[in-house]
């Protein structure tokens, strides 16, 4: 069986074709221009991951929202659930850059952190 992928690891976006045998094991990878492409395809077949970036509500800040992200890519099938979970959280200002918002999000071992600070009024 053949499966096609577009690699997302760099802007080039190689179109990669993999051939799988009856057990689902990869027998051939073509179209990639580097090793990262092959690694990407292997990961997509076994443990596809994405970085989630979203926002979290902040109370008492100069902004109503704080941008947050998963420090590392999380399993793809957790992305929507995590986004929904993050909608229910409200932080108190000030929030500092890199502040952990959720530790070990959804049991992935990966933290969700603030990507920028949100000050309290008065510049704190």
């Amino acid at each position: 069986m053949e499966r096609k992928f577009v690699c997302i690891r760099c802007p080039q976006g190689c179109e990669i074709t993999t051939t799988l045998n009856g057990n689902g094991a990869i027998t051939e990878i073509t179209g990639n221009s580097c090793r990262i492409g092959a690694d990407f395809v292997k990961a997509e077949l076994t443990d596809a991951r994405r970085t989630l970036t979203t926002t979290v509500r902040v109370s008492g800040g100069t902004r109503p929202l704080c941008p947050v992200w998963t420090e590392k890519p999380v399993p793809k099938d957790k992305v929507l659930d995590l986004a929904a979970q993050l909608r229910t959280i409200t932080l108190n200002a000030p929030v500092s850059a890199g502040q952990i918002i959720i530790k070990n999000a959804a049991g992935t071992g990966i933290n969700i952190v603030a990507s920028a600070p949100v000050m309290a009024p008065g510049g704190k």
Partner: peptide
């Protein structure tokens, strides 16, 4: 631009826009 994809040349890291600006 809260999504990631910034900083690969300057910081050799994949950062969200706000973190890059920060």
């Amino acid at each position: 631009c809260i999504h990631n994809g910034f900083g690969s040349v300057i910081f050799k890291k994949d950062l969200p826009g706000p973190a890059y600006a920060y």
